[in-house]
């Protein structure tokens, strides 16, 4: 057949056609959408560096806190990560549980009702959660004291319990509740995507419902759960209002004591509280911490993607 493959370019063939108009438009649209997101990312990075440049070159004594950038931003990064990790530790198991209940346990009518409620919760603005957290902080003190008394041997619960209840743990709990709906919604969707064939294979081997879930639904949904957790983490890391309202940051340095008054703030909360009243290098310092938050979020996301990709061979995508 090799002799017939040469095509005479001058000859118009019935197999040729002009470019299709719709194809061209759609291709251009999706290309430009892809480029826009890259431009936004570059723009944000540039803007952050522009704002941060004064503080980056300034002497350590001139920046906020007067002890250098690392001394100022380090504890804030620590506080940001700590509060978000607490939130994730609470929210991940809880959201998986709720999602499984909705997708595999609840009767169908209850399940759809619950699904709506969860989606509604995801739309509640964070300031509402902040106000709520501030309200209940005081009444949470007895349970904090309980933790301190009986689990005080764990460094996290040691130290003196603050009487206001506005602690790192409180922030973690409020953030957890805040990110719970979005994570639940994502988890529910991926759990519902589990191929029926896999579920039936497991049941036919004599699996109980829980074993079927452990054998098929959770492994299948794992990468989705990680993505949902990343969405939640992103929201928790960047949460401003709830943190700013509840936490009375006292520049506590790197304190692991979740229940004491001695707490580091978070980057977003700190920027929100201090931005309006700061100028010059002080304000530029806040840009540096914003840049740090940007980088931290980036790293966390890349780490999560790396975790997912490690066993992609077994992901069920093939």
């Amino acid at each position: 057949m090799s002799t017939t493959t040469a095509v005479d370019p001058t000859k118009t063939s019935s197999l040729r056609s002009g470019r299709r108009f719709g194809d061209a438009i759609f291709s251009a649209l999706s290309h430009s959408a892809g480029i826009v997101i890259l431009l936004v990312l570059i723009g944000v990075t540039f803007f952050l560096f522009w704002g941060a440049k004064d503080a980056l070159v300034a002497d350590g004594s001139e920046v906020r806190g007067g002890a250098g950038l690392i001394a100022y931003i380090g504890p804030l990064i620590f506080g940001t990560l700590l509060s978000s990790i607490i939130a994730l530790l609470i929210a991940v198991p809880l959201s998986i549980g709720i999602a499984l209940f909705i997708s595999h346990y609840a009767p169908r009518r209850l399940a759809s009702g619950l699904g709506y409620v969860v989606d509604l919760l995801a739309a509640v603005p964070s300031i509402i959660f902040g106000l709520w957290g501030m309200q209940i902080a005081g009444s949470a003190v007895p349970s904090f004291e309980f933790l301190n008394e009986y689990l005080g041997f764990i460094p996290l619960f040691s130290g003196t319990v603050t009487t206001t209840g506005r602690t790192m743990l409180m922030i973690g709990i409020v953030l957890a509740i805040m990110i719970l709906p979005i994570m639940t919604a994502v988890n529910r969707e991926v759990f519902l995507q589990t191929p029926r064939l896999h579920e039936e294979a497991s049941l036919a081997l004599g699996a109980t419902r829980w074993e079927m879930i452990r054998q098929t639904v959770i492994p299948f949904g794992k990468s989705g759960v990680v993505s949902g957790a990343m969405l939640g983490l992103g929201r928790a890391l960047g949460e401003t209002m709830a943190v700013a309202i509840i936490l009375s940051a006292s520049g506590g340095g790197y304190s692991w004591e979740l229940l004491s008054a001695n707490t580091p703030g978070t980057i977003a909360g700190d920027i929100a509280l201090n931005f309006p009243e700061s100028f010059g290098v002080e304000r530029s310092t806040l840009f540096v911490s914003g840049l740090a938050l940007f980088v931290v979020t980036f790293l966390v996301n890349m780490f999560a993607r790396w975790i997912i990709s490690r066993r992609s061979e077994f992901s069920g995508a093939n």
Binding site: A201, P219, A317
Partner: peptide, 11 residues
């Protein structure tokens, strides 16, 4: 079953 359905997440 009709379609082969080994668990994709398992060896």
């Amino acid at each position: 079953f009709q379609k082969p359905n080994p668990f994709p997440t398992m060896s």
